[in-house]
């Protein structure tokens, strides 16, 4: 029973990360119908840039470079800002010229971007794991994580933090999309790009903002991933990126609360699956879910429309 609760908590934490990355996938797909594979890599850059901001010096392209050694709570927002800029740049370079091209072209460009970024990161940071410094806040003096005990299950402060930050980010995002002018423009553009352009919505700007939000959320997930697992690695983003996309599909692509629900569901299934079924096949669960989903309920849990329009 305790073990089960422990696994559920792990799943919740992991699922929060998926949910944050899934935001980018779901919003961008909702508006330009593109699977931006590069969100996985932006997540990875989020982790690396967080490290860079937290350490005093670190090797980049083989050269030692000095860094400010900031606190985690300052480092992550900076990483989010930088990565948001990267996201906009990626859109400008690789996707915007292809808005009116066949979907295949943009999709190939996206997978190219993902591979490119992953390998650029390898050139910058090397191919092995880079240590992610302990964030201090949730570690007691003896080096063990602080936790509270609820009916025999230990809940670490870090787990609470990750889930709380995710929920807060999701609520803010939902408010933004539902209540602000830009959010309304976004929803309009997701409904019908050309009509909203006629109605005076600056569609390119809306798309850029979508990339900013999606990338920043990915970077936030990257920073928290580092805090949990204490490393970053150039190829760390690809599989979580894919899983986040699956989470987005699971929730109903284009649907922001769906991304949250899908991420959490996927995280929990994965945790329980690897605990009770097989840990070797851990990465396979998400893919099996995807296959079942596409066969039985392609519109996802909260519904969307992904079949071809006539």
């Amino acid at each position: 029973m305790d073990y089960l609760i422990q696994q559920l908590l792990n799943g919740l934490m992991l699922g929060s990360l998926y949910a944050l990355i899934a935001v980018g996938y779901t919003m961008v797909y909702g508006i330009i119908e593109l699977i931006n594979f590069a969100f996985g890599e932006l997540f990875m850059f989020g982790a690396f840039i967080s490290i860079a901001m937290m350490v005093d010096s670190m090797a980049i392209f083989g050269q030692q470079v000095n860094f400010p050694g900031l606190h985690f709570l300052l480092a992550v927002p900076i990483a989010m800002a930088v990565v948001a800029g990267m996201g906009v740049a990626i859109d400008r370079i690789a996707y915007r010229p292809l808005r009116n091209a066949p979907r295949l072209a943009a999709l190939i460009s996206a997978i190219g971007m993902s591979i490119l970024l992953q390998n650029v990161a390898q050139a910058m940071f090397g191919s092995s794991q880079v240590f992610f410094p302990d964030i201090g806040m949730f570690t007691s003096d003896n080096g063990l994580p602080k936790y509270i005990t609820v009916s025999n299950a230990q809940i670490t402060y870090l787990q609470i933090f990750v889930v709380a930050v995710t929920v807060a980010a999701m609520l803010i995002l939902n408010f933004f999309v539902q209540r602000t002018r830009i959010g309304r423009a976004m929803r309009a553009a997701a409904q019908d790009k050309s009509t909203s352009a006629l109605m005076g919505v600056n569609v390119n700007r809306v798309i850029a903002i979508t990339f900013i939000i999606g990338s920043a959320m990915g970077a936030l997930a990257g920073g928290m991933y580092g805090a949990i697992y204490h490393f970053a690695k150039p190829d760390m983003g690809f599989i979580p990126g894919l899983k986040a996309f699956i989470a987005a599909v699971l929730g109903g692509i284009g649907n922001i609360p769906g991304a949250f629900l899908g991420g959490i569901t996927l995280g929990v299934i994965e945790s329980l699956g690897s605990a009770y079924i097989s840990s070797e096949y851990r990465d396979a669960f998400a893919f099996v879910i995807l296959i079942l989903l596409l066969i039985f309920k392609p519109s996802g849990l909260l519904g969307s429309h992904i079949s071809e329009k006539a």
Binding site: S114, L116, N119
Partner: peptide, 22 residues
């Protein structure tokens, strides 16, 4: 020493071909 060069070239080719010469 830098196996990532291959991946960088591959990614760059995919993006550049799509954007410039699909």
């Amino acid at each position: 020493a830098h196996p990532e060069v291959r991946g960088i070239a591959m990614g760059a080719v995919l993006v550049a071909m799509m954007v410039l010469r699909p």
